[in-house]
């Protein structure tokens, strides 16, 4: 689902938060071969030589992406027991399960770079690693669940489609799998909202309220403006990132405006209007201070999300222990029989 944080420096993949400089001229034969393959739009596979900074950037980005999928289960998971019908409940369970699956594909992709699952999970649980800040906002009513599908997953799809062409093979392959499943997420959300819009006045107000609260947060999901994205140029050079934050944001807005019209809601931006000359919609200022504040851990739900995640992990410890003990016992028994 959700990658905003691709440009967000954290302490996991890039210790000390050192900014990556623009590619220096190739140093070695290996580096020249790597650069040549990137230039030819080829793919890099786990066993291939790669610059340390390329590896670190990917570990940071893929693990942030994986964490976002895992934490992303929480705001929607809150609504599984309160879904308005059995049908919606089954849909929501399937969607949340998908997000868990996406997290697992991505953790596996990151592991091919030499990092361990345990280290990545420690990074998330200790607060060192970042995840998409959209999940640090609460889901206050059922319409929020629909809006997450329509807008949050919609924004995520915009972000993720270019990642299917990422230069790192395992990440690109994981993204192809994710993108195939993602379309259902957006459509089920939009459809749930369409149903509410055909309901009572109070239900229509709920939808509008959810859109009002989440719209700007969705625009921020694409990351800081190009001018303020420290890793963007390098990421583009390496074929990790294919389309800039601002360009993706614009595509998302242009795609969403007609959808909002069909749904019958307004988007909470007085500056939002079609610009004939540009062939795009103009839009207002995003509150980047709020964005960074949430990234830094001070959003309304940061503490709650992390605490829930850590508790789930701790509460599951006995299951992991038991599975391992069982496996060891089985192996010991098989060895004994063989002897």
């Amino acid at each position: 689902m959700y990658t905003q944080a691709m440009d967000i420096p954290d302490e996991s993949g890039n210790p000390g938060g050192k900014k990556l400089s623009v590619v220096p001229p190739p140093q070695s034969e290996q580096e020249a071969a790597f650069e040549a393959r990137i230039d030819a739009d080829g793919r890099i596979e786990p066993q291939d030589w790669m610059p340390e900074a390329y590896r670190k950037t990917l570990v940071r980005q893929i693990s942030q992406h994986a964490h976002s999928e895992i934490v992303g289960m929480l705001p929607e998971g809150n609504w599984i027991s309160r879904a308005p019908s059995l049908k919606r409940k089954a849909i929501l369970i399937a969607k949340v399960q998908d997000e868990g699956g996406h997290g697992l594909y991505l953790y596996s992709a990151a592991e091919t770079l030499g990092t361990s699952r345990g280290d990545m999970i420690d990074g998330l649980h200790s607060g060192k690693a970042k995840y998409s800040s959209i999940f640090n906002y609460p889901t206050l009513n059922w319409a929020d669940v629909g809006v997450i599908g329509w807008l949050v997953d919609g924004a995520a799809i915009m972000n993720q489609i270019p990642l299917c062409r990422c230069s790192y093979g395992p990440y690109a392959r994981a993204m192809i799998r994710v993108c195939k499943e993602e379309s259902f997420h957006q459509r089920q959300g939009y459809e749930a909202l369409l149903v509410m819009m055909k309901g009572s006045e109070a239900q229509r107000r709920m939808v509008q309220d959810a859109v009002n609260r989440l719209w700007w947060k969705c625009l921020a999901m694409f990351g800081p403006p190009d001018a303020d994205s420290p890793h963007s140029a390098q990421g583009m050079r390496w074929g990790i990132k294919r389309i800039s934050n601002d360009e993706l944001r614009q595509k998302f807005i242009d795609a969403t405006v007609p959808q909002a019209k069909v749904l019958g809601v307004t988007l909470p931006d007085p500056d939002l209007k079609w610009n004939e000359e540009r062939g795009h919609h103009d839009y207002g200022q995003i509150d980047w201070q709020e964005f960074w504040n949430t990234v830094e851990g001070n959003g309304p739900c940061n503490k709650e999300r992390l605490a829930t995640r850590v508790k789930a992990h701790k509460d599951g410890q006995w299951v992991r222990d038991a599975a391992l003990a069982h496996a060891q016992k089985q192996r010991a028994r098989a060895d004994k029989e063989a002897a």
Binding site: A94, Q97, D98, G101, L104, Y105, S108, E111, R117, R173, A174, R177, E181, R320, A323, L324, H326, A327, Q330, R331
Partner: peptide, 24 residues
């Protein structure tokens, strides 16, 4: 080949593979 996962033993790996890689 479609991916990888962590599991305690082969039987669990099969169960997990079913949930992670064949939901559709």
């Amino acid at each position: 080949h479609c991916g990888s996962l962590h599991a305690a033993d082969a039987a669990q790996a099969l169960h997990m593979a079913r949930d992670v890689y064949t939901r559709r």
